[in-house]
Amino acid sequence: MANRNGDDQRVALKERIAGAADALRQSQVWTSIFRPGSPFRHGYSDSPRNRSYVIMNNVLYHLHPVKVKRHGVRLSYTLCLGGLSFFLFILLTITGIFLMFYYRPTSPAAYNDIAALATDVAFGQIVRNMHRWGAHAMVLTVFLHMARVFYHGAYKPPREFNWVIGVVLLLLTLLLSFTGYLLPWDQLALWAVTVGSNMAAYTPVFGAQVSFGLVGGVQITGDTLLRWYVLHVLFLPFIIVVFMAVHFWRVRKDGGISGPL
């Protein structure tokens, strides 16, 4: 008997919770956050109309149309390389902001801060690892994305200019990776960047000026560190976000994903 009574109470409690959840989902606050079509809305049903609304009433509408060509969804067509490049950029931004809390771009301190990530900072080492491997992965995915687009002939009219923007994005990705390479301020960073920026000095006519501007002096010093740090965390991300916005907009305006072979 007691057991049965307990069951009844539990049912009543369940109903009350369900009622409260319903009331919450019908409240003005909730409906103002989740727009029509959102699966979190009260009375959502999986209908073609709601499937359209999910995208249309969502910030995702800036990236994706309501419908896409069926072949574009196939993983084997795009391998999701462009999307992964963008996702890696977001991941690098998040891990990069984490790292900025523990990093000072000055001559000996930079190295000590990086070394301290492994010992003094919770999750410091794994976040730094993810930032570094993610950066290498992004160079790879951007390059492979370019190759994929070439082999599909997806740069042909009307997509010519988006290909050019893509080449700019590839260069910016390389520059972001290269400027980040110096920041650990160890022997690997210093001499890899020395070799790399020495190549820039061979630019015809104004090679010396290019090298001076890049390094911030006649040779790499602590000033170079600050300069590349600002380029890495502020200037280049800002530029690449602008170009990415145009790149994604043009994908939509040029007729969405390219046609099948």
């Binding site: 190295y111 070394a115 492994a118 650990p184 160890d186 022997q187």
Partner: peptide, 8 residues
Amino acid sequence: DAPLLELA
């Protein structure tokens, strides 16, 4: 782990 050699 990401590489970290000696100080520059």
